[in-house]
Design a protein around this nucleic acid. Structure first.
Lengths: 199, 199
DNA sequence: CGGTGAATTCAACGCGTGTTGAATAGTAAT
DNA sequence: ATTACTATTCAACACGCGTTGAATTCACCG
């Protein structure tokens, strides 16, 4: 019988506990949000002592920030929208919204941030930053009038879709066939980009 | 010196404590959400003992439900959208969204619900119910194809605008002049209602 | 082989929470 | 006056939370 000690460092084979913690934390933030995620629960999910989390990340906010840090990276691999011809802007934006912002790695992080932003200010700041890099900059590059109003509207679009679909669970949009989603979203985005605005 | 007793019922003049509690609760739910609203804090804001809240409302969920109950009433006083000619539907919807859903009594309740829905399921259920009575029914009455997809998109619109404007604090849309907001929103809503959908 | 540092657990502290049960002081009806 | 009821406070419980500090075991470098 090998006597396995409870205390102290684990032997050999890199279990990569740190990453496991980050994964579990991300999952919890995405499904119940910041406030209802407890370090104790995350620790238990990984099978580890709570104080190991504070050893690695210092504080709960630290864990939150670290687990969602990569969200900044994985930038728009698809390339900038302004590279496409003007009459395809709507479709390119719509496709990206459907493909990148819901589901996948980025989609889970985005959900975690949105779920937490309602009460945790640091998460709200993340949303503001994503708005600037993902929408304000892109829309500004299109050289339209009143870019801030239009960019905020686009941001509201993906925020609202995530909220109603993933958090509220309205089936209306999520259950529709892909081409319907795409057609409607393209029409809406095109309206946001092309609507004539006063002043 | 009148000896004012600490304990027991307060004499005479109806202070209407119950309503004061509901107001304070609503305000707190709107500004910090369900999780970060504590009965103790609400009680202190009213100048009352925490156990008075449980005497009146039983539980925290009870207080939440009760304080946001009137949200159902105060229905669309403006009348149904289907009463307007087809080419004005977009504008009527847009005006209502701007006037009714942000600011005012209904707007505060709506904000409280959205802020709480991210983590509290009972709040999410309220959103689902508002979606049905305020959007699904109205859009269905317009006799368009695929009403559920369109209604969900409209619901996402107001949800997203509230979220980005009130919770994240993006100034892009909120700071724009009223007529710009209206013009953009009308264009978007019109697109949602008129975009041709496959199948 | 000895020592430094990293990974990990343990036990505990202090705090804020929602909720409970009993007590008290007024009001209204008999 | 007695009764019943409502409004209100008080003191306390049990619990879960984030965090702390010390202890222990392993890996690695000289």
């Amino acid at each position: 019988m090998t006597d396995t000690p409870k205390l102290g460092r684990r032997p050999a084979g890199d279990s990569n506990t740190r990453d496991a913690i980050l994964d579990a934390a991300r999952a919890s933030f995405a499904s119940v949000g910041y406030d209802r995620t407890s370090m104790r629960a995350v620790a238990k999910a990984v099978g580890v002592d709570p104080s190991l989390l504070v050893h690695y990340f210092g504080t709960k906010d630290g864990l939150f920030a670290e687990s969602l840090r990569v969200t900044e990276a994985a930038q728009s691999l698809i390339g900038h929208v302004s590279a496409a011809p003007r009459e395809q802007w709507g479709r390119v934006f719509a496709e990206r919204m459907l493909a990148q912002w819901q589901g996948g790695e980025f989609g889970q992080n985005w959900l975690a941030i949105i779920r937490s932003a309602a009460s945790e200010p640091s998460a709200a700041r993340m949303v503001a930053h994503l708005y600037e890099t993902r929408f304000l900059q892109e829309v500004t590059a299109l050289d339209l009038d009143h870019p801030a109003v239009r960019a905020t509207m686009m941001s509201s679009l993906v925020t609202g879709l995530t909220f109603t679909g993933q958090i509220i669970g309205l089936p209306g949009f999520a259950a529709a066939p892909r081409d319907q989603q795409l057609a409607l979203l393209e029409a809406v985005v095109t309206a946001v980009l092309t609507a004539p605005l006063p002043e």
